[in-house]
Simulated assay, not measured.
Amino acid sequence: MINKKHKTIIICSFLVIAILIIYLIINLNSKSNQVIEYTLQVDNLKNENVNTKSKLTKENSILKDEVEQLKKENKKLLDLVDKYENGAPKLLAEIKNAFKQKKYSEVKSLYEVLLKYHPEKEETNKANEIIKQIKVIEEKEKQKIEEEEERKRIEAEKTAKEKARGILRISSVYPSKPNSAGGVDLYIKGQNKSKKEIKYIYFDVVAYNAVKDKVSCEIRGTTVFRGQETGPIKAGKWFGTNTYWECAWYNSTIKSVTIEKIEIDYMDGTSIELTGKDIGYIIY
């Protein structure tokens, strides 16, 4: 049996143990809070360090840019001083070198600089003589280009003329005198200059009075008369020798006519149209 004394000792022991456990728990919590606080302080220091480093890097970059800009401005100032002190001879030498290489635009730019900073120098007068030579050269080149363009234009026109004349020839186109009713006949004579057989030819013709104004048919009310020549017309053969369009217009003031368009249908199913300058080429 446990006596009263032993029981008291056991109770006291449990109390001591409980107090020790409580003390240890409190101490552990305190240590844990200290660790957390320390960790937060470390993280804050790291963030501050990163921000400071980033700020310093940015400021360093700005300073580098400013230094480079100052270097450029310093070089410009040195170049400007050099232009005033030694510029004229150097610029003239550069002008002569560019002229030899036929860099005429560069010569003109350098001359403008020379004229701006050294208007009274002998080098400027010499450079001006080079500019005059360039003007003569450019004028000759311009004339050469214009002559070449004109030659090409004439060649192209010649080629177009030969092409048109290889299709058709119109030897004559004219109106008759008006009859008693004012009717005017139309005559067109021509030749098939192509190597293909013609099925139909359609002529769009306009009539003019004595003062070269277009006139219309007083009955039909139309200005353009469309005449049809029916084939077959073999290669090299003539048409319109003994044919004409009777009373193409009714207008007693008609004095002349002009073909505005020709459409040709060939027996092989192909067709071609002549207008503008081509009409003028084939009338001969």
Rank of each mutant, 00 (worst) to 15 (best):
I2F: 13
I9H: 03
I10Y: 13
C12E: 06
L15Q: 03
I21W: 15
S30L: 12
E37Q: 12
L40W: 03
Q41R: 14
V42L: 11
D43G: 00
D43Y: 12
N47H: 06
N51E: 04
I62L: 15
K71Y: 08
K71W: 06
N74T: 06
K75C: 10
D82P: 01
G87P: 05
A88F: 05
K90N: 11
L92W: 10
E94H: 07
A98G: 00
K103T: 00
K103F: 10
S105C: 05
E106S: 15
V107Y: 11
S109D: 12
Y111Q: 10
E112Y: 13
L114H: 10
P119V: 12
E120N: 15
K121T: 01
K126W: 11
I134K: 09
I137N: 02
E141W: 15
K142R: 13
Q143P: 00
Q143L: 11
R151S: 08
K152C: 03
A156F: 14
E162L: 15
E162N: 14
K163M: 09
S172E: 13
Y174L: 08
P175T: 00
K177F: 05
P178L: 00
N179D: 13
S180I: 00
G183F: 05
I188C: 09
I188Y: 12
G190K: 14
N192E: 07
K193H: 12
K193Y: 15
S194H: 08
K195Y: 09
I198L: 15
K199P: 01
Y200L: 11
V205M: 03
Y208T: 00
N209H: 01
G221E: 04
F225M: 03
E229K: 15
G236I: 10
G236P: 10
W238F: 14
T253S: 01
S256M: 04
V257T: 08
I264L: 13
D265W: 15
D265N: 14
Y266E: 03
T270Y: 08
I279R: 11
